[in-house]
Design a protein around this nucleic acid. Structure first.
Lengths: 230, 230
DNA sequence: TAGTGGTCTAGACCACTCA
DNA sequence: GAGTGGTCTAGACCACTAT
């Protein structure tokens, strides 16, 4: 199970940078030199250094060479799991219950967000996600029916709207926003907590090409934490 | 400015997956077949498909082939900028002010977190980060002096503790946790907001190899949102 | 203009794992 | 055992950009 050579080189270079062999902003040897030093093909060095660049450790420019990133900005890769997975990872049973479900005129804020016309109808669904029967998160979602007509007939007996959409429109584009919110009376009741409590809020909007699909707000149980390594 | 071939192939494959040419869990052609189809070397296909695998779009196994990920888990890459950048990106002027600063016996919760001995001293610093003079975030930080002795003499006239540490110990490891918190009286006063208001909280711990360096809590102004594309 | 990274190729051998 | 991805090589040409 010998580690691959490009990985060894990658780690070696990262260690040398951490050890201070090159300071922030310093230029490190070019690929040909490193290939000679590590006794391998330039392609292999390229792969190693390219990986460091993708992680923001170094910055590369043709002719300018490769330099240690002078403004290190660590990036966390956040996995955004489906709620079912998020719950099951804690060893609990996942279930959900649909609260409201109706086709309505979308309010103007949602019409703007989803680029819908003034007369467009949208599907509104409220879902409570449960862990061992206890409320885990509350989801309030708008779906652009024109983009996903099948959803009008989905039963959501087996799959939550969340999962249904993921399976139906996988790998669409989207954006997420994380913030903190105070529970209003309604959300507090659903999450079995006090009004005004601070909860973690995820705001997510999804589209495919130029068709806006859905937007949702997800209010997590107080105490929820989203964790990631750097 | 023709796009590179591996990128074209990557996009083409992703489009074909989105278009439903292969369903979730389906196997896509192997590298040799794709290389023939796209009239290029297998190496080039490999790079394209490898990128898809890194994004979680497909799952690869030797002998098993490459399959469309049946449980698509989108991952957001969150840039975690230095606060100065975060403020300046909004077009405002960044500044900071140091509140408390003292060397103390670390409380037991911090000692546990940083793996410090019972007698270890630690540096405690409170920093308020300002945007155009208005409070933007409040930081409460513990530093393991044994790991970064120089920090005892740092003046923090130019650089905030945050920036000082990034420059002094770049590319260390760490973890981040995002959550929501209610402001207590002290934090509310510093952020010029009401007690009990919901704020976004970042909890971050950093180490180098096996030396624990620092841990901090960062309370953002109410209304702050952390955004990312999927 | 020259140096450096970006990409591509054709071929090779190996490691894993499915049947 | 055999099929597939994982990696590596040696060489080539190109694209960008610092000087």
């Amino acid at each position: 199970m010998s580690t691959s050579s490009h990985l060894k080189i990658r780690r070696s270079l990262q260690d040398r940078i951490q050890a201070g062999e090159w300071a922030l902003g310093d230029r490190i040897p070019d690929e040909v030199a490193l290939a000679h030093e590590y006794s391998c093909a330039r392609t292999t060095v390229n792969r190693a250094v390219r990986a460091l660049a993708e992680d923001g450790i170094v910055i590369r420019r043709r002719k300018g060479g490769t330099r240690v990133n002078p403004t290190p900005t660590r990036q966390a890769k956040l996995r955004i799991p489906i709620l079912r997975q998020q719950v099951e990872e804690t060893g609990k049973d996942y279930s959900f219950s649909i609260g409201k479900r109706s086709v309505r005129d979308a309010p103007s804020s949602i019409r703007r967000k989803l680029h819908l016309g003034a007369t467009a109808k949208a599907l509104y669904i409220e879902t409570t996600h449960l862990a061992d029967g206890e409320p885990f998160a509350f989801e309030s979602r708008w779906v652009n029916i024109a983009a996903v007509p099948d959803i009008a007939e989905a039963s959501f007996n087996e799959l939550s709207p969340n999962e249904w959409l993921v399976q139906s429109v996988p790998f669409s584009n989207g954006s997420v926003e994380f913030s903190a919110a105070s529970t209003d009376r309604k959300v507090a009741r659903i999450l079995c907590t006090e009004e005004g409590e601070a909860v973690f809020l995820v705001d997510r909007t999804t589209w495919r090409d130029h068709d806006f699909i859905t937007t949702m707000k997800l209010f997590y149980q107080p105490g929820f934490r989203l964790r990631s390594d750097l």
